[in-house]
Design a binder for these strands. Sequence first.
DNA 1: TATGAATGAGTGTTCATTCAT
DNA 2: AATGAATGAACACTCATTCAT
Lengths: 202, 202, 202, 202
Amino acid sequence: MGLPLLANKKQSADKHQKIIEAAIAVFAGNGFFNSTVADVAREADVADGTIYLYFKNKDDLLISIFEYSMDLFIQEAEAALKSSSDPKEKLREFISLHLKLVQKYPDLAQVIQIELRQSTKFMKEYPNEKFFQYLDIVSGIIGDGQESGVFKKNLDPVILKRVIFGAVDEIALEWTLMKRKRYTMAEAADQVCGMIFEGICQ
Amino acid sequence: MGLPLLANKKQSADKHQKIIEAAIAVFAGNGFFNSTVADVAREADVADGTIYLYFKNKDDLLISIFEYSMDLFIQEAEAALKSSSDPKEKLREFISLHLKLVQKYPDLAQVIQIELRQSTKFMKEYPNEKFFQYLDIVSGIIGDGQESGVFKKNLDPVILKRVIFGAVDEIALEWTLMKRKRYTMAEAADQVCGMIFEGICQ
Amino acid sequence: MGLPLLANKKQSADKHQKIIEAAIAVFAGNGFFNSTVADVAREADVADGTIYLYFKNKDDLLISIFEYSMDLFIQEAEAALKSSSDPKEKLREFISLHLKLVQKYPDLAQVIQIELRQSTKFMKEYPNEKFFQYLDIVSGIIGDGQESGVFKKNLDPVILKRVIFGAVDEIALEWTLMKRKRYTMAEAADQVCGMIFEGICQ
Amino acid sequence: MGLPLLANKKQSADKHQKIIEAAIAVFAGNGFFNSTVADVAREADVADGTIYLYFKNKDDLLISIFEYSMDLFIQEAEAALKSSSDPKEKLREFISLHLKLVQKYPDLAQVIQIELRQSTKFMKEYPNEKFFQYLDIVSGIIGDGQESGVFKKNLDPVILKRVIFGAVDEIALEWTLMKRKRYTMAEAADQVCGMIFEGICQ
DNA sequence: TATGAATGAGTGTTCATTCAT
DNA sequence: AATGAATGAACACTCATTCAT
């Protein structure tokens, strides 16, 4: 009696996951608004109605993708950042990781970067905690660096975290949309780190 | 005989402009997909059908906003950049200008930054020349700076222009979406320039 | 002062005629419902609004075509039927004429045969006098023929006129729609007359 | 487990049929172009969207009516024609049957005769096979009759089948549109057969 | 749980008609 | 008389969501 329940729970989790993954693929391919719930259902190989057993509505599906992916990103980031204690190395690691993740999960990245922003409703109303949590990894590193004297103290971490995220994310976005890749992610990471650390002036 | 024609032309241009402006306001407020053509018509104080006398369809309206705004941005940027010949000053001017423009035309900025990116179709299919033209102002400045020895030569202008644009645009985006402004655009411009020019390392 | 008026009247009549002819061409090509008033205006080389100076509405345009064409058909039929006094010859003449007219005015024929029938409203509500007048040419001939003993007296002219018209009109319709003509109208006229006069039995 | 599926299939077929019948009634009453899909839905007592579960679009509904009715006609005709082997009797049977069918399914007949012809697109583009199949029943009978010497050999079956169909169909059409019936279908059948077999000449 | 047929509100778009010029 | 810009009602079609099975 316990086992079947467990089995069901697992099956249930599997189906939830299956739908999430289907939604990521579908939304990345066609855009959130141009995709139908039926498209997602077909991709996930479930009935339309089944989606509503796992998600409140279509918007909830998008939000769930976001939370799922931010959890994934945060988890991977925290794991990766343990290896080093030097703020500079940590920041390099973070930038490199973000770009790697975009490369590893291109559909996911596209949904996050493009489709999510589309929903003004989402951007304005949804308490975007997970994203701030992700961003705060950056401001944490900056704060540590400023304390230990590695980074300049006159730079405002609130602004800086956005500047760094924006720079890295724009590169990631371009890379996602580019058909013929003109540079590797490793090259891009080097360039971005170079610029952020030392600036562009001679 | 010539005058009425002129008047008509002007009136016609006025109505075109009126619809564009209405669309910017509506799309910024609700998002492109959540706005109806009827909403735009109401805002522009014209009949629904009138929209279709000036624009092919709803998508065309979005694209027109984009072209209109990029023209505006490019024009303002070129005017502003004439004042100085120092690449560093020019870049500072450009960054400052972009942020000022976003502040001056917040609805327009929001449509460009958010609504436009939503349309995967748009991002993937529309030959995004005007945007590249805008971006190329940055790579032009970088190129000049590298030639004259002001900027480091080992940085790839193709990547760099994106990094700079991403950093600036993310700040602009956050500022647009922030309800209670926690910093001024001038402060932000200083911080961004500081980081870009000299880097974040001590 | 008299002349310009006359000239205007003539010009006015010309424009009326021009619109009728444009409407015939457009409706024949695309069907009444798939054609727009603007299409007709363009074809007639007048402004959209001008159509409404000469016709009450789009339906009126169709009815006017019908009346115009039936007048034309009746006029040509009456002229042609004067030449002979033999009912059999007259009927042969009528059949031949109808087919010739369809061949001569294919667009007109198509509008009458197809587009007119579409409008149930028209078929049911419009007092279809002109068409009955045309049909009555046939019953007149039959009546004469029965009186003079050329045609069988036990046939009901009311039914018969329809049978004959239906037979002829179906041939005309097929001929109008056929792309590669497989028989000439003269052949068809011969066959139809042969059948109607002598029947199909050996 | 099998039964519910069967029930569903049957129910599904029922709904398809229900919509077809509603469409026939609505199109016959108002004409295809003057009827809305919502009208059909209301008549069929289903939601607007349901129509699109069974038919591709409004045109498809019209075409489906056509195919449905031609199948019905062909089936009834083939059944009726088995009883006799005499070409003359067979032709009489066919004519009588066509008129009876029009009387039995007046709405259907009207849609076929009138509404279908309206759509130039349909008449020109739709590969009208079913209708030709129906017409070919007539040419088959004629061919047999000519072979067996019952019908004149100099008459072209291609033209003749149209002449006969046109004659019969015009009678049917008039009868459908006539409000006060001035003759019975049986009378009409007799008259038509008399004329077709023996001609109108004394 | 899972299904998928059914729903019906919602919307982009067309076009007959009007009317100020 | 003639224009054609403007109107706004109308409609085909879509799709998120529900619910009986």
